[in-house]
Each structure stands twice: as C-alpha cells, then as structure tokens.
C-alpha cells in the first residue's frame, strides 16, 4: 500500500503554476525588449499574441481548428474501429493470431511519419491523406491495447461464466469485450494524441487549411511568431481534449477503484 500524504491544496498549486507561466512569459518578453533575445528567431509573447489576434480577425483560427479536429476525429474513429475489430479477430482465433500478429508488430516498427508523403501522393491534398496518416498511428495503439486486453483476461472469469452456461459469444460479450474496453478507454488519451499528431504532420506536408498548415505556412515565410502561435493553439486544443477525456474515462470506468 502506498502511503497517503495530505494532498497539496489544488488552488495553491494552480496559482503557483499560473505564476510560473507568467514569469517565463515576462522573462521572454523583457529579454526581447532588452535586446538579449533575437525576436527574428524566437519571436516574443506580445508578437505571438498579435499574430493570433490577427488570425482570429481573419477567421483563420476557427477554420483551422475545425479542419484539424475533423481529420483527427475521422482518424480516431476509423483507426480505432479497425484496430478493435482486428484485435477481436486475432485474439479470439489462435491461427489468425499466430499468423498475423507478427506482421502488425513489424508494421508498428515503421516510423509512420515517413509514410505521410506517400499518402499525400496517393490521396492528394484532401481530407483523406490526413485521415489515413492519423489512422496508421491510431490503429496500432488501439489494436495492441485491445489485443492485450482480451489476452490478459483472468481465466477464472472465463471459467466462471462458462460453467454458468455461457457460449462463445456470451463469453465475448460479458467478459472479453468489457475487459478489452477498459484497456481501450485507458488507451483513448494516447490514441487521440496520436490521431492529432498524424493529422497535423500530414497537414504540414501539404494542405489548404488546418493548424499544421498554419505552422508550415508561417515557417515558409520565416515568421517565427506564426510558428509559435500555431503551436500555442495546438497546445490549448490538446489541453481541452484531455480535460474532456479525463471526465469521460471516469464515467466509463465507474466500476474501477479510483487511483490514490
């Protein structure tokens, strides 16, 4: 058992974190104003703010975020769906598992980012080149989580429901899938993260809109404020998504003891 210490005061922690961020931003800003930091290479918080404000006025931000989220969502659903179906098939059939799992391990070892230019070539600057880039990342995360989830199920649970009269499909429905679901939910946050990475990287290689496109476009113009601005938007996006997923996980896994 882990010893439980008094948890730190939430608000105090939050206040200190805000103070830390403010201090870092101020140091950056004054470093630039004092001529110690070259704004050409490092920009400055005020300039980044101005850039983001400009994007907002032009209506770029909502459009970019919408496009990127659309790609991320499609990538997540498609990659997750394929991953789950594949895992259920390969985990429930000894032969299929023995034959195909090594291939998946092999594919998983390919640095997927290097495939993105290929997808652009195949699918053009469309939504689908981004979705496929996200899919090849998400698929493996979800596949291995689900596969392990089904394989690691406690044999006693299976024996118990079988004696109670469960057939193959019943075992699947009442034991294997719920067990795998817990792993899938636990992998959800990294799956969403990977989906976003896939989408952004593909945008970076060629797109007409999206946060990744915005970053790449700024970079091409040697506009460091634009690069940092894009990264900032990405950061906020991931932060909000994680907050939401944390809530979702807690609701879906009510039957699990809360980690101390």
């Amino acid at each position: 058992m882990r010893e439980r210490t008094q948890p730190a005061n939430r608000w105090l922690v939050l206040a200190m974190q805000v103070a830390l961020i403010a201090a870092a931003l101020l140091a950056w800003e004054f470093g630039v104003r004092a001529g110690k930091i070259d704004p050409f290479f490092f920009s400055a918080p005020s300039q980044i703010g101005v850039t983001i404000g400009g994007w907002w006025q032009h209506g770029y931000i909502l459009r970019d975020v919408y496009v990127t989220m659309e790609e991320t969502l499609f990538g997540l659903l498609l990659g997750g769906g394929i991953g789950i179906v594949l895992a259920v098939l390969l985990a429930s059939n000894r032969w299929l598992g023995a034959i195909f799992v090594p291939f998946l391990v092999l594919f998983n070892s390919i640095p997927r980012v290097t495939l993105v230019p290929l997808f652009i070539l195949w699918f053009g600057f469309t939504l689908w080149s981004k979705v496929v880039s996200a899919v090849v990342l998400v698929l493996f995360v979800v596949f291995f989580a689900t596969y392990d989830g089904i394989k690691d199920v406690d044999p006693t649970l299976v024996a118990n429901v079988r004696v109670m009269g469960a057939k193959r499909l019943d075992v699947m429905r009442h034991v294997l899938i719920p067990s795998a679901l817990t792993w899938i939910f636990s992998s959800l946050r990294s799956a969403v993260g990977f989906s976003l990475i896939g989408a952004v990287v593909a945008e970076y290689f060629g797109a007409q809109a999206g946060v990744g496109y915005r970053i790449q476009y700024s970079e091409a113009q040697l506009n460091t404020s634009g690069v940092f601005g894009g990264l900032f938007i990405l950061m906020v996006l991931v932060f909000i998504i994680n907050l939401f997923l944390q809530r979702l996980q807690r609701r879906l896994l009510v039957w699990k003891p809360v980690d101390p």
């Binding site: 406690d154 006693t156 649970l157 024996a159 118990n160 429901v161 004696v163 109670m164 009269g165 009442h174 034991v175 719920p178 067990s179 679901l181 817990t182 039957w255 699990k256």
Partner: peptide
Amino acid sequence: GFLFQRDALLPWKTVRDNVLLP
C-alpha cells in the same frame, strides 16, 4: 455450480448484474 477460490465476479458488473448473469 462452481465456486472458485479466486474472485470470479465480473468487476464491471454491479452485484445485481452479477447475480442476474447466469
């Protein structure tokens, strides 16, 4: 009916749903 030494209840089902399962 089989009573196991190890816990064999389904952790994702409530007491009622566990008893209902068979």
